[in-house]
Amino acid sequence: MNLGNRTILVVDDEPRTRQGIRQTLEVWAAGRYIVETADNGIDARERLLHGRVHLLITDVRMPEVSGLDLIRSLEGQVRKPVIIVISGYAEFDYVQQALRLGAVNYLLKPLDKEELVQVVEAALKQEEEQQRREKLEKLVDHKLMEIDPDTAGMGEPVKEALAYVEQHLHEQLTMAEVAGRIHLNASYFSVLFKEQTGVPFSEYLSRLRIQRAKELLLQTSLPIVEIGERVGYRTDKYFIKVFKSLEDMSPSRYRHQMKNGRSEI
């Protein structure tokens, strides 16, 4: 994960508080994070709309666009930052509203530097975990996850077929070949397979190959053409075509986005 591309945005209309937070975090971060500031909610909202922010630290009360308004403006965004709010003791009802809107923690003024760093570290760990889960979500094929050989309705012939495909995924498999291996007529096997797994054999084979390809894209630096060969495709052109049909992007773009800390599509 490239921490140098991760950004913290500090929003506060009080210059002393804003700059104090920035300086404290820059010393703590030692170049690991980019720390940016905004002195009002309007500029902050524009920054959030047009660039990736991983952690938002905002005062809850500001003129024109408050911290609460800023948090509300993030609703519906695919990738929202984790949020810490700052407030005075007399504004704790605003803090409660912010927590209900999704803020993960709060800080009361005057800020303690040690507490600030501790709260920021915890929030960034939460953001990393959130990003990790999102990446896993992109990696996993849920249709494949639903196919469980141990379910009561799965017969031995289909179980054997699933095991055979797993072991010979790199080969040029056909439905007729797999059916022959388990001594079934191809037409009957086709009906049986879909009935017990919920997907046609050809779709299952494509999904499994692309699932394995995604793992290789992230875990190795192998060329695209070699990865295609390893999961059973004779040409990289056809491999890319099937990959795009299931993932809505090319293998190279998938690798780039996932390895550079981006999971949005």
Rank of each mutant, 00 (worst) to 15 (best):
N105W: 15
V53E: 00
V10Y: 02
L111S: 04
I83H: 02
I240P: 01
S263G: 06
A213M: 05
E26P: 03
V95T: 05
L139C: 12
I83W: 06
G76Q: 15
F239D: 06
Q211T: 15
Y204D: 13
I83A: 02
K159Y: 09
V65W: 04
K214A: 13
R16T: 14
M154C: 11
M145V: 13
E229A: 12
Q97G: 02
K109G: 00
T58V: 08
P223N: 10
Q118C: 01
A213T: 02
R47S: 04
R52A: 11
I71W: 13
L184D: 00
E91N: 14
V191L: 08
S73N: 09
N105G: 07
R72H: 08
G88S: 11
F92C: 00
E91V: 09
I182C: 00
M1C: 00
P149T: 10
I224S: 11
A90R: 08
E134M: 13
H183P: 01
P149W: 04
P149C: 10
R207E: 05
I86T: 14
G20E: 04
F92Q: 12
E121A: 08
I86S: 10
L144H: 12
A176R: 15
T151M: 09
L246H: 12
L48Q: 10
Q131V: 05
P251A: 03
L124Y: 12
P157I: 15
L116E: 09
I224C: 13
T174R: 01
N2C: 06
G67P: 05
N5V: 02
E226A: 09
E203S: 10
D236T: 12
K159D: 06
L9C: 09
F189W: 03
V10W: 01
V119H: 11
I83D: 06
G198L: 07
A213F: 11
N5G: 14
M249F: 08
E195I: 00
Y94S: 13
R100M: 07
